[in-house]
Nucleic acid binder design. Structure first.
Lengths: 208, 208
DNA sequence: GTCTATAGCGAGATAGAC
DNA sequence: GTCTATCTCGCTATAGAC
């Protein structure tokens, strides 16, 4: 039972909603760009708004405040990443390959990576608005990797002994984040994909 | 040939210089504390000055400006670290053991570690005042580790093949930085020393 | 060497017109 | 839905008294 039966009204409302959605996307794109360049703390709402082509009060019509803007940008990033790569698979081999595929995509298309790395780095201090979110993500990544290495071990494809799967998970997560930071500082001196692939190879007999 | 022969004047001047030096140290201690808690960007000169027990203008008598304060704090940290641990040794085994000893000290006494990690993280964005300094440090660490692994390889104590010493250096530096960040977020869930020792063991046959 | 006072800026957020 | 105008705040840095 629609609120209105007038098809012209519905169409107009639909168009408006689509335009608003497009506006929101443009603002989020601008925010990701700005955050990745100067960090969340270094970015002003006026800066984001200018990149998106509106005033900062116009921006605040679409998002409640600055932390809300960051949260929306992070949510969108994680939703799209989950769609693209199957980190949730039960199969450890698939997770290993997803890690490498994600690194290859990140090197080709580094905007999202830079955004996430910069915000992750900033959020090390507990007062940062994304601190809690990032700690949750860190724990989820560790759990995912632990499950993947455990699966490999049960299938006889694991060779990192005496490191346990949960220790190996910390190794893999730490090296990944550390290497991303090194790569962002000196992209010409590091082959990020090979660093990550090289470490995962030390943990499994599967060809990667 | 002293500027004055009056021993009382020399003594008074010496006492004053010592008091000033002590004041500078207190300010640097306060700055390291503040930076480690809320980061360089999140810290105001008023905050540092209050912790050190003087006004922010009084602080600016001892340091030229905010970037100058950060630089002085970083210089002091690296000078004291170089005194305490022999990272410059030609002997790869000594460097490996220094890395583990430094981690043990860091876990016991985490203030310096937290300061360095937070500033390292923040300085990922190029506009940060410590960006250049940290990139230099990153390259120096890589060179040091490459030399250490090369030394181990020449003495038949290296087992990370097919990883070359320079690749292993990136692995070691990245994992160290990444693990420090993980540990600072969830200190109870990670044994930082064992993570670092565990990785170095994968690279050498020496008992660590 | 340290202070008070203040200049000057840029930020986040709100009010109200259109 | 977007704007201009404004409020209020905190910051770095300087000037000048003591």
């Amino acid at each position: 039972m629609p609120l209105t039966d007038d098809v012209r009204v519905r169409r107009r409302v639909g168009l408006q909603a689509a335009a608003t959605e497009q506006r929101r996307r443009a603002i989020l794109d601008a925010a990701v760009q700005a955050f990745s360049e100067v960090g969340y703390n270094g970015t002003s709402l006026r800066d984001v708004a200018a990149r998106a082509g509106l005033s900062h009060t116009g921006l605040l019509h679409h998002f409640p405040d600055k932390p809300g803007l960051l949260e929306a940008a992070l949510d969108r990033l994680f939703d799209s990443t989950a769609l693209e790569f199957d980190f949730a698979s039960d199969d450890g081999v698939i997770v290993m390959r997803a890690l490498i595929a994600a690194a290859e995509r990140d090197v080709r298309e580094p905007t999202s990576l830079r955004f996430l790395a910069v915000v992750t780095a900033e959020s090390l201090v507990p007062s940062h608005p994304a601190h809690g979110f990032m700690r949750l993500m860190q724990q989820r990544v560790r759990e995912t990797l632990t499950a993947a290495f455990t699966d490999l071990q049960e299938r006889g494809l694991y060779r990192a002994d005496p490191l346990t799967p949960s220790i190996a998970a910390v190794h893999a997560a730490s090296l990944r984040n550390g290497a991303i930071a090194e790569w962002l500082r000196t992209p010409d001196e590091i082959d990020l994909v090979e660093i990550i692939r090289g470490q995962l190879r030390m943990f499994t007999t599967v060809e990667l």
